[in-house]
């Protein structure tokens, strides 16, 4: 996993609420047996018509919006457990998703793939959307060490939550699997004790 410390970037707004994993990556693209290339089909049916034409009014197709931070409406990532959703976002180039609420499984999947989900209040979320509308290239700074999110040219500067363990993993680029493998003895002892 890539390390995450400090990120400065413009943002892509997606004001829709309850964005589900079927929108992030439709099921028909889940037939791959590796993790690569999912970015191509990120938000496929919102980006392209059934004939493969670009839908100009969708945020990812609007050149004034760019950057590695996605700002999304409430309850982002609900639905399926498919990690392909996180792979698609990461492969497309997103490192941070900001929303007022995340579905549980998505949040875990994001963190396991080096994407930082930042939960802000509904009010702050609206102010961020407004700030982007005001200045499409406005820069956001995400400081994981200090758990701070700030938006340039505005007074938006908020702290965000992340549990200590996950923060340590993100900062160092560690995977859960390495930690679990280091606990093998304890796990075997647990198995012995219960049988």
């Amino acid at each position: 996993m890539k390390k995450f410390t400090l990120l400065q970037s413009s943002m892509v707004p997606l004001t829709v609420e309850n964005v589900d994993t079927d929108q992030i990556i439709p099921a028909r693209f889940l037939k791959a047996t590796d993790r690569k290339g999912f970015g191509e089909n990120l938000f496929r049916d919102w980006r392209f018509t059934t004939d493969g034409e670009t839908k100009e009014d969708f945020t990812l197709n609007q050149s004034q919006y760019s950057g590695s931070i996605l700002v999304a409406g409430n309850n982002f990532g609900c639905g399926s457990s498919r990690e392909h959703a996180a792979w698609a976002l990461a492969d497309y180039g997103f490192r941070v998703v900001i929303s007022s609420f995340f579905a549980d499984i998505f949040k875990g999947n994001a963190l396991n793939n080096g994407i930082l989900p930042i939960q802000v209040s509904p009010e702050v979320l609206q102010r961020i959307f407004a700030a982007i509308e005001e200045n499409k290239g406005v820069q956001a700074t995400v400081d994981l060490e200090n758990q701070q999110l700030s938006i340039a040219e505005t007074d938006i500067a908020v702290s965000f939550e992340i549990n200590d363990y996950k923060k340590m993993c993100m900062l160092n680029g560690y995977d859960d699997i390495d930690y679990l493998l280091s606990q093998k003895e304890a796990i075997e002892a647990f198995e012995q004790n219960r049988s």
């Binding site: 990690e83 995977d175 859960d176 606990q183």
Partner: peptide, 22 residues
């Protein structure tokens, strides 16, 4: 409960998942 593929790998490797108690 449902898990992502990274966690599927974790369970393969250790028969455990790392998860905060809901």
């Amino acid at each position: 409960f449902g898990i992502g593929t990274s966690q599927v790998a974790q369970v393969f490797a250790s028969q455990c998942v790392l998860v905060a108690k809901p």
